[in-house]
Design a protein around this nucleic acid. Structure first.
Length: 398
DNA sequence: AAATGTCCCTCGTGCGAGGG
DNA sequence: CCCTCGCACGAGGGACATTT
């Protein structure tokens, strides 16, 4: 059972790294552990599907669960929230009617057996695989093959019966865990352990931020740094509604009056993604790609792009310098992070001035025709670089 | 004037080859 | 067995000509 061995191996390595105070090795082991948990979360999500009995139990009994578990607390950071969430006995949330440490059948993680076979010729390999597969008739088998050292290697992954699971409270990690493996005395083992946030992702088919958000709402945990952001966005929204009018800021209204719904969508997006906000020098920021924003607005990204950049120029949106260091599939691009300041008359006065320059100072530039080169022409390189952070844009312009 | 379609450029990632 | 390099690919921001 090499899945168990590989987990054990990672845990051993981590223990060793901690003992030796090797930060790099600890990080590496943690990363490996996280990625196996993540892979298992995805596997379990697929096995259970979007509608499952755990989700059903939660949805049907939400009021009762809330009454039972609510803690009504205001705290400062998301880390504190996670600490509190880990203390929740999730048996009540997902209707797991079992005692602590009592084994029961796990319905979403199968035991898995890996068998590696080496042969001298391809024919022998094929025959050997056939023979081996006979032993596991009726079970799902995935075969992969490759050549190594002149040998033909066949690898079989046989999915087995349901595994055992049990609930435990881990004193060193300070949280309830859903353990998967076997408690048999002669050969106990652990395939994987899930905490409440992993389970929430599996059962509710969501990601970690939504899981935290959902559990905070359930438990009545209010995170100050997020609630402040929510409040600011709400105030900005009503400031726009009450002040961005033809009579109060005529030129600004002429420039972006038509775009107000897009600005509102960005606020709604920010509120929806409240728990995805991250810390930056400017304050709490969130990310939304051009494509994503365009989709939620039912437009093309090339329509949205100049509008977002106009908002940035006007100071209604700031593009902070975020260096997350991660960029790629499923990650947020560093240049699509936004900080939204508290709107007031001063900001709008400034925006009115800028709108004046765009529309009536030299060549008339409308919101949808705003671009990097136009920005340089009207406002200079420095301001343009603050708004247009894409390297391609700059490479092309030079 | 706004929206769209198409294209361009770069970066991160995955994968296989080759070296230690 | 692990690290590094090169290469192809897809995602993403943005420009620009064309359509609505």
């Amino acid at each position: 059972m090499d899945r168990i061995e590989s987990i054990k191996d990672i845990l051993d390595k981590r223990e060793l790294a901690i003992a030796e105070d090797d930060r790099r090795a600890v990080n590496k082991a943690n990363k490996a552990l996280n990625s196996t948990i993540k892979a298992n979360v995805i596997k379990a999500q697929e096995a259970l599907g979007a509608d499952n009995k755990y989700k059903e139990y939660f949805v049907n009994n939400i009021e009762h669960i809330k009454e039972l578990l609510v803690i009504n607390k205001e705290i400062n950071t998301i880390e504190e929230a996670i600490g509190l969430i880990h203390q929740v006995d999730f048996r009540y949330i997902f209707g797991l009617d079992v005692l602590m440490e009592e084994p029961f059948a796990c319905e979403f993680i199968n035991s898995e057996r890996r068998i590696s076979l080496a042969f001298t010729t391809e024919e022998k390999a094929n025959v050997g695989v056939e023979k081996e597969m006979e032993r596991f008739k009726g079970k799902e088998i995935i075969v992969s093959s490759y050549e190594r050292f002149g040998m033909y290697i066949k690898e079989l992954v046989v999915s087995g019966e349901n595994t055992e699971a049990w609930i435990t409270y881990n004193l060193t990690r300070n949280k309830y865990l859903y353990m998967v493996g076997s408690k048999k005395e002669d050969n106990p083992y652990v395939i994987i352990s899930f905490d409440i946030l992993d389970l929430c992702q599996i059962f509710m088919k969501c990601d970690i931020s939504k899981a935290i958000q959902g559990l905070c709402e359930l438990l009545g945990i209010r995170i100050k740094e997020f609630e402040e952001v929510r409040g600011r966005y709400e105030r900005c929204k009503s400031f726009v509604r009450n002040n961005l009018t033809k009579d109060k800021f005529p030129i600004l209204f002429e420039l972006i009056g038509e775009q107000i719904p897009k600005l509102e969508t960005i606020f709604e997006e920010g509120i929806d993604k409240l728990y995805y906000h991250g810390e930056s020098k400017e304050g709490m920021v969130f990310s939304a790609s051009m494509q994503y924003l365009a989709d939620t607005m039912g437009k093309r990204k090339s329509t949205i792009n100049p509008i977002v950049n106009i908002f940035a120029l006007l100071g209604l949106l700031q593009k902070p310098d975020v260096r997350s260091g991660i960029y790629g599939k499923g990650c947020n691009n560093d240049i699509t992070y936004y900080y939204i300041p508290e709107y007031n008359n001063e900001i709008f006065q400034k925006a009115e001035q800028l709108a004046m320059i765009l529309l009536y100072n030299g060549e008339r530039v409308t919101a949808s025709s705003f671009s990097y080169s136009i920005c340089i022409e009207k406002f200079g390189q420095e301001i343009a670089n603050k708004i247009f952070k894409d390297k391609v844009t700059k490479a092309r312009a030079s």
